[in-house]
Each structure stands twice: as C-alpha cells, then as structure tokens.
C-alpha cells in the first residue's frame, strides 16, 4: 500500500486508535513503515507530520 499527499501528510494518534480500536503509540508507526519519501518534520506523542520545510 502506498500513500501520497501533496505537500503535507499528518498521522494522528487519535485517528489511528479510532480505526484500530486500541491504544496506539506513535512510535509503533516504525513497525509498519516500509519506505518513505519526504521530510519527517515532527514526531511526538500525538502526531507524525511529514512535510517539506521550504
């Protein structure tokens, strides 16, 4: 499965937990990601933001 978004892609803990029906730590994303392209701008407890700076 490949996901693309123009400019900015945000993964929020809340929306993942809603779909999984369980608690989810953003670090768990590391177990699921196979390859990526872009710039990981922000990675904290609540969200992962992939976006270019400029």
């Amino acid at each position: 499965m490949r996901i693309t978004a123009p400019g900015r892609l945000v993964i929020t803990r809340e929306s993942v937990e809603e779909r999984l029906g369980r608690e989810w730590e953003t670090h768990e994303f590391q177990l699921a990601i196979v390859s990526y392209f872009g710039h990981i701008k922000e990675w904290d407890d609540d969200e992962i933001v992939i976006a270019w700076d400029h």
Binding site: L31, A32, V34, S35, Y36
Partner: peptide
Amino acid sequence: GFSAQSDESRHMTLGL
C-alpha cells in the same frame, strides 16, 4: 528487507 527499511526511515531522517 521491510524490517531493515523500517529503520531506514530514521536513517533517511538523520541524513536529511
């Protein structure tokens, strides 16, 4: 490969 590539996202970030 996928297991290694999941670390790769961190490595790419370090490079960038």
